[in-house]
């Protein structure tokens, strides 16, 4: 994820996409879509572990915590499907 972030920054600085056409050309290369997809897979597992730890520490009520954890998992799966759909529609 850190590598992807740095590459993203470098690409933005090099290409400076300012128009809609530029932005599409920036996002469309297959290898960039693949990198973005892999980034999102990493992001999902990272967010899951992080939020799980935070909820474990700050939500002592097991029932409420379980509901929140399930909501987090659901949200992350929705985001995963969402980004996949967006990347495929490019």
């Amino acid at each position: 994820m850190a590598i992807y972030s740095v590459v993203l920054l470098i690409r933005v600085l090099l290409l400076m996409p300012s128009s809609y056409e530029d932005w599409l050309a920036f996002s469309q290369p297959w290898w960039w879509c693949l990198a973005t997809f892999l980034f999102w897979v990493s992001l999902s597992s990272h967010a899951w572990l992080g939020v799980r730890d935070v909820l474990k520490d700050y939500v002592p009520n097991v029932k409420i915590r379980m509901v929140l954890l399930k909501l987090v998992v659901l949200a992350l799966w929705v985001y995963m499907v969402w980004i996949t759909f967006l990347l495929c529609s490019l």
Binding site: A47, G50, Y79, S89, L90
Partner: peptide, 23 residues
């Protein structure tokens, strides 16, 4: 690190909506 992590997690739908609109 924790607080910013939570903030970034909560910002994910915002990021997705913005990206969807932009493309």
């Amino acid at each position: 690190h924790r607080v910013t992590g939570c903030a970034l997690f909560l910002a994910l739908p915002l990021l997705l909506v913005t990206f969807q609109l932009s493309i």
